[in-house]
Design a protein around this nucleic acid. Sequence first.
DNA 1: CCAAAAGTGTTGCTTCTACACCCATGA
DNA 2: TCATGGGTGTAGAAGCAACACTTTTGG
Lengths: 242, 242
Amino acid sequence: MSNKPADEINENGTGFIKNVAIDTVIFGFHDNLLRVLLSAYKNTNYFALPGGFIREKENLHDAARRVASERTGLDDIYLEQFYVFGDYSRYDPQPFKVIMEANGNRPSESHWLLQRFISIGYYALVDFTRATPTPAAIFDSCNWYDLNNMPELIQDHSKIITKALEVLRANLDHKVVGYNLLPESFTMGELQKLYETILSKKLLRPAFQRKMLSLCILERVAKKYSGGAHKAPYLYRFVTGE
Amino acid sequence: MSNKPADEINENGTGFIKNVAIDTVIFGFHDNLLRVLLSAYKNTNYFALPGGFIREKENLHDAARRVASERTGLDDIYLEQFYVFGDYSRYDPQPFKVIMEANGNRPSESHWLLQRFISIGYYALVDFTRATPTPAAIFDSCNWYDLNNMPELIQDHSKIITKALEVLRANLDHKVVGYNLLPESFTMGELQKLYETILSKKLLRPAFQRKMLSLCILERVAKKYSGGAHKAPYLYRFVTGE
DNA sequence: CCAAAAGTGTTGCTTCTACACCCATGA
DNA sequence: TCATGGGTGTAGAAGCAACACTTTTGG
């Protein structure tokens, strides 16, 4: 939970469901690295996952989509609910107290943001080249960090990312992941690099190519002349069924 | 959400987290049928999943375990969090209003149980022969219903069961399910019947037997002389690693 | 003509499917 | 001894890992 617009910061959180937060793990892929969007709070050393809250009459999914959209500038985002984090031990209001104080607020102990939150985790898969990381108004910046080189995160946000990656990996087999993380067209090599990065292991090139083509979800578009001294790879794109 | 003890029924739900419910789909297996525990409210025609709420300092998992334990009398229950139901359209306070009125209460519109709830779904797998369905104090009865022959349920509880079954099926491959749904010892035929019931399809006997044995999680205990005019099957049990 | 990367062929192993066969049991 | 259900054997198909080979590109 983070990135709240200014008007959300009032003592009792009018208009929002209390004690429930949404944390989104927004994955992007670039330069052969899997990255996530993190918010950095101004005037503090705190980093956190993009998060938000559910409006009183808002669908849970829509709230997650709203958060992911506001941070990326995209409006057609692939989202997957992956886990709920509900241990009482994750209750840690200290960071928010510091953040608010660093920004000139003096919240009372009963401020709604200082209460316990049950956090519903969503992961998003976005096309790195189309997303424009956008910090929430006033409060923070927002940037990509690769998974192997992340700053320390508040609360249990590191664990949330770990769990998101775990579920993403488990879903690799039966859900099409590349469609959301890659640009419109891409080479088979790029697709393989994506899979290898998510799984953290090498895959055999011939096997991967055949497996992907056997799914009948890819079509060849054209060849890509990269200027490299080697055979030009085909470009592929996902067939959308239209 | 249902089965609340009397002391939970006060206007503002003191001691509980508001707007969040837990619904548990408690599966049991008996007579070759997959069954779920349903609560029937007295003085109404309403049936619902066993449910409950999270105490202010209680872990989410512990709240789910508490609900499942109270309904079954068991204390070592296998639980799996499977989905969160958060559409605003599922908000339907009517049944609770009727239930409370049928039991002599006159809740105000602002009664906490008549507010919107986001419901966290857990499924439980229990040994039918050990569970003793126990209704929550005063309010309702509690019984097994087989999946193909269920009463109409309040709100979106049917959809919740459908989703639970979906996830249970998906988990059949990589989680050991029989251990929790069967008694201490069982025949290979019984285990196969369980799988066939969950998947709603026939499996090949030799293949099933070999697959199960190849997992090295079963050990033979003894033969079972059923009195039937046929070869006595072996009894198996899950090796626990002790 | 060479190096590098992409695409395809092939071989052998493992796994699964489908059916056949044998074994034990009590009427 | 027969019907019934449980356990095992096995041939063929399918799938996959591993490696070899061919093709294309620019230096």
